[in-house]
Write a protein that binds this DNA or RNA. Structure first.
Lengths: 248, 248
DNA sequence: CGGCGATCTTGACCGCGGTCATTGCATTCC
DNA sequence: GGAATGCAATGACCGCGGTCAAGATCGCCG
């Protein structure tokens, strides 16, 4: 059983002031946001925003994981982004979505009405600045990912992905075992999603994972749980890129 | 001879009001911009902004082509973006550049002092909004590119790239030949750069180009000049993606 | 004019990774 | 308990595209 695939949805509402993205905002901005905030919950597999839709809201994730993906006419799929708790999703100032946004796990979302948020943005420079900086960071991350897909082999991409998971403290925890401490990471998605994210196939992911295990870089506890045994080795495998540093 | 590799640098200054990006701005915003604008010229191959630099300016391109690229520790390179005339380059609100920005051809740039521009942004909501929308479009384009690299084969990527060139009217012109009209496109960069952009190698680019020619989809006039003979065929090859629609 | 260097092209080879098929191992449902 | 379902793992095969090497083409410059 993978607890990350079945988050327990608590009944407490969004606490926007506690979201890292909004923390730096002045109190009145947060209050204004809170006034246009509605909670929505989705079950794994449900579509939040469909490709080419004109959604009425954007928001941020309180709990769960969303995947942004595109399905090509011939059926091939690609995930352009995984969004975890505290990430923003959707698109202000833009009519149509260019991707499907689906719940990869059960999810609870704090949603802002699009119109109301755009009004707010126009009247609140601090908020608009926050969004600008946020989008700039996303752009950087997207370009890092372009490099990942453009000139790295699958094993390197997998290593980079695991490093990103390591850096997200919510997904990683230090585990003391014997004399040396390991980093435990939970992979919150299945092999197929992971393959679509890394631009390859589930079989290749499987082989790459076990290759890392054979080299002693990771240990496989179960298909969704690994221990990082050799962090420097993993970093070397990833090609020393500084992944995820933009998204602390 | 490839005239696009050696643009003649005219002596006239930037006419910001005529740049499509700025056209919608109120006159006073444009005037303010013009006041902090300096022209810089670069020769092909020169570095405009180095990876990890903290550049003192950003700007937009009056003439020429810039490439944003990253060189990995092991020497592999990847181009994350080609910037042509009227595109913005560089990064407001961010200390360090994550990429090299180099002149792929001789280039003339309208540059804004970074500090002055950031001051301006804080005081001019219309300008800040323009930047936000601009960055959102770049993010969309980057994600399209992620899909291109993540789940399309080289011949499809090449086809998509040619379609983007077609849609940039400056690079494409209709040519009447006999009864049917062709679209002529100039490829402003060499095979090696193109390979780094499309995530492959120069040899593979060469083969893919000639494969398209063998199928009668394009005609090769010289290594930098093609005629599109079968636009629907090219679109089908590219997988019906709507490339470049974000950047009209 | 002739040699030289850069770029593009083409061929031969082969390895990474895509594809297909099979197996194993859970969990769920009858 | 046994059948059914879903995901992961593994093996066999092979094709796309990376790599290396050798021509081809063109512009440049002595």
């Amino acid at each position: 059983m993978n607890h990350l695939n079945k988050p327990t949805l608590t009944s407490k509402e969004c606490d926007l002031a506690r979201e890292p993205v909004f923390r730096k905002l002045p109190k009145e901005s947060i209050d204004a946001l809170r006034r246009i905030c509605r909670v929505r919950t989705y079950r794994a597999g449900q579509t939040v925003i469909a490709d080419q839709d004109e959604p009425g809201f954007t928001g941020c994730i309180a709990e769960g994981i969303l995947r942004m993906q595109k399905t090509l006419p011939d059926g091939r799929q690609h995930i352009v982004g995984l969004l975890v708790a505290h990430d923003m999703f959707g698109r202000v100032l833009h009519r149509r979505s260019n991707f499907d946004i689906e719940a990869a796990t059960d999810a609870r979302l704090c949603c802002f009405d699009r119109r109301a948020l755009e009004d707010l943005l126009s009247r609140d420079p601090a908020l608009e600045r926050l969004f600008l900086v946020n989008v700039l960071d996303e752009l950087d991350a997207a370009r890092e990912w372009i490099i990942l897909l453009g000139c790295r082999r699958v094993s390197e991409r997998l290593a980079a992905f695991l490093l990103i998971l390591c850096r997200r403290s919510a997904d990683a925890e230090r585990v003391v075992s014997g004399s040396n401490d390991r980093i435990r990471v939970h992979v919150p998605i299945g092999r197929a999603d992971l393959a679509n994210y890394l631009g390859t196939r589930a079989e290749t992911i499987s082989r790459a994972v076990h290759a890392l295990a054979d080299e002693g870089i990771i240990a496989i506890l179960d298909p969704h749980t690994f221990d990082i045994l050799d962090l420097p080795g993993l970093i070397a495998r990833a090609g020393n890129g500084d992944f995820g540093l933009n998204r602390p």
